[in-house]
């Protein structure tokens, strides 16, 4: 098989999913709105006190980002499963892992990237100091793709079940914990003015691991789910 047809298949899948997401706008709006609402409710519910919010900001932002991503995970494969597109994808002679990677990338561009873009504003509203802003963006940039990649394995495993929602959270959440711990710790550390290289290296390692292994695991899981 030619290389051109491989990249063509990848980019066609990416473009297809982005077009679908743009035409059903709720897919983009829902996770983003959820993210904004959760973060902006904390000052109202807990206390608007600056020092308190500043210490809680990294945790609040990351927990909200994690939940927002989890909320949108199901859309990676659900509608394709229902209308038979997923079968067609598995019957393509192109490598399934590559097509899956295209779909995951589309999911991240639609649900992860908007979170990164809005995060600085939410950071400011929680009095996150300027020194921590780079850490916030860097951890989100490295961490949210991992959430999409790892989440896709869980969705692929549960897509055939009628009520897979709870199972999906149970499957995926434990795998999200390392990202959550290192990312929120990195932001808090950066706010204290200490170097966060260690945490970023760890997140980058998780990302490298997820981007190489998750598409293959997802492809295998899809085969099992459609059996």
């Amino acid at each position: 098989m030619k290389n051109a047809s491989l990249s063509n298949a990848f980019f066609t899948m990416l473009k297809r999913d982005l077009t679908l997401a743009l035409r059903t706008r709720s897919e983009i709006a829902n996770p983003l709105l959820f993210f904004i609402i959760v973060v902006s409710l904390f000052p109202l519910a807990v206390s608007p006190e600056e020092s308190l919010l500043r210490t809680m900001a990294p945790g609040i932002i990351w927990v909200a980002a994690l939940l927002a991503t989890m909320l949108s995970l199901d859309s990676i494969f659900r509608s394709d499963f229902e209308d038979g597109s997923l079968e067609q994808m598995l019957l393509s002679p192109q490598p399934i892992a590559l097509l899956v990677l295209g779909k995951i990338m589309a999911h991240w561009l639609v649900s992860g990237l908007p979170l990164i873009l809005i995060a600085p504003i939410l950071g400011i509203s929680l009095f996150l100091p300027g020194e921590a802003m780079f850490a916030l963006l860097a951890t989100l940039a490295l961490g949210t793709p991992v959430l999409s990649l790892v989440g896709s394995i869980g969705v692929a495993l549960t897509v055939g079940l009628r009520r897979g929602g709870v199972l999906l959270s149970l499957l995926v959440l434990p795998l999200y914990i390392p990202v959550l711990i290192f990312a929120s710790n990195a932001i808090a550390t950066a706010a204290a003015g200490i170097s966060i290289k260690g945490q970023l290296y760890f997140l980058a390692a998780l990302f490298a691991l997820a981007v190489t292994l998750a598409p293959m695991a997802t492809a295998a899981a899809l085969r099992i789910s459609l059996r």
């Binding site: 098989m1 047809s5 063509n8 298949a9 066609t12 899948m13 297809r16 077009t19 679908l20 035409r23 059903t24 394709d80 229902e82 209308d83 038979g84 597109s85 997923l86 079968e87 067609q88 994808m89 393509s92 002679p93 192109q94 097509l99």
Partner: peptide
């Protein structure tokens, strides 16, 4: 072509075919 035939409602017929063309070898 199965019972669920995988034609995406949000895409036009032309876009649907372009996708399956790219998936084919």
């Amino acid at each position: 072509i199965g019972h669920a035939h995988g034609v995406k409602g949000e895409l036009t017929p032309l876009e649907n075919l372009q996708v399956s063309q790219a998936m084919s070898a």
